[in-house]
Lab assay of single mutants.
Amino acid sequence: IEKFKLLAEKVEEIVAKNARAEIDYSDAPDEFRDPLMDTLMTDPVRLPSGTVMDRSIILRHLLNSPTDPFNRQMLTESMLEPVPELKEQIQAWMREKQSSDH
């Protein structure tokens, strides 16, 4: 029984630690959010139409349809242009958020 109590305490400790580690990014500025999924972008790319999306989301879309989801023009992965300035701004915002939450 004592071992179970210790195990339960350890589990509670881990759960509390994980809860502290989770950071809420739901208040991200609109320009940091993917327009299709409304999630925080981690690897922004510009489509030929000028729309900026997260790379993982547009690549997932391209698996089903080789088109720009906003104007239905033909689109391939090679046409995606990285946006390193925005990526750095997002990373800086995330770092600031992490340091203010801890």
Rank of each mutant, 00 (worst) to 15 (best):
T67S: 06
L62Q: 01
T76P: 03
E31Q: 11
I1S: 15
S78T: 07
K10T: 12
V11A: 11
V52I: 12
I1T: 08
Q98H: 12
Q89L: 08
P82K: 02
A19D: 08
D43C: 08
I90A: 05
E9M: 05
S78E: 12
Q91A: 03
V11L: 08
V45M: 04
P66T: 05
Q91L: 10
R33C: 03
N18I: 08
M37G: 02
S49Y: 15
D54A: 00
E13A: 12
I14R: 05
I90M: 00
D101G: 13
P82T: 08
K5N: 09
T42F: 09
T42L: 09
I90N: 01
M79V: 04
P82Q: 07
P66A: 12
N18Y: 10
S65G: 03
K17N: 12
V15F: 06
V11Q: 11
R46T: 05
V11K: 07
K87R: 12
D43I: 01
P84L: 13
R46S: 10
L80I: 05
P69H: 00
I23V: 10
F4L: 13
E9L: 05
S56A: 09
N18M: 07
P84S: 13
L75Q: 00
P48S: 03
S49T: 10
Y25I: 03
D27Y: 07
T67H: 03
M37F: 01
M37I: 05
R60Q: 05
E12K: 12
F32V: 01
V15E: 13
T51A: 08
D24V: 07
L86Q: 04
K3N: 13
V83R: 04
P44R: 00
Q91D: 12
I58V: 04
K10R: 12
D101H: 06
E77N: 10
H61N: 01
E9K: 09
E12H: 07
H102L: 10
Q73A: 15
V15S: 13
R46I: 07
S56C: 08
P69C: 00
P29L: 06
G50D: 03
F70R: 02
D34H: 00
T67P: 00
L7R: 10
S26R: 09
H61D: 01
K87T: 10
M53A: 15
F32Y: 11
L36R: 01
M74Q: 08
E77A: 05
D30E: 12
D68H: 00
K87E: 10
T76N: 08
Q73N: 07
H102N: 12
K5T: 08
L47V: 15
L6S: 14
S99G: 10
R72S: 01
K87M: 14
I57V: 13
V45A: 03
D27F: 14
D27Q: 12
L47R: 00
E2D: 15
E13Y: 15
M94T: 14
Y25F: 13
F32A: 03
K87Q: 14
S26W: 15
D30A: 07
A8D: 09
K10V: 14
N18A: 08
K97E: 15
M94L: 14
T76S: 09
L40Q: 03
P29Q: 04
K97M: 15
I14M: 13
R55L: 03
N64V: 04
V83A: 07
S100H: 05
E96D: 10
F70V: 01
I58F: 01
N64Y: 15
F4C: 10
R33I: 05
V83E: 11
E9G: 08
T39D: 15
A19P: 10
A8V: 09
L6M: 12
N18P: 04
L6Y: 08
F4S: 10
K3M: 06
R95M: 05
T76L: 10
E12D: 13
K97N: 15
I14T: 09
D43H: 07
R72N: 01
S99Y: 01
P84Q: 08
S26T: 13
L47P: 01
E22A: 06
M94G: 11
V11F: 02
M79L: 08
H61Q: 02
R20H: 13
M94Q: 12
L59V: 09
D34Y: 01
E2L: 00
K10E: 13
R95E: 07
S26K: 15
E88Q: 09
M94V: 14
Q98K: 14
E77V: 05
V11G: 10
E13H: 10
I14F: 15
A8P: 11
E9T: 08
M74N: 05
A21V: 11
P29T: 07
R60P: 01
E81Y: 12
S78H: 03
V83M: 09
E22G: 06
E81A: 10
Q89E: 07
R60C: 03
E85S: 07
L63A: 15
V11W: 05
L40P: 04
R20L: 14
I1V: 06
L7H: 10
E13N: 04
L6D: 12
E22T: 09
Q91H: 11
T76V: 06
I23L: 13
S78I: 05
S78G: 13
P35Y: 03
S56P: 08
V15P: 09
S100D: 15
R72G: 01
R72C: 02
L47M: 05
M79K: 06
E77L: 03
M79R: 06
M53R: 01
K97P: 07
E13K: 08
E77T: 07
V45E: 01
M37T: 08
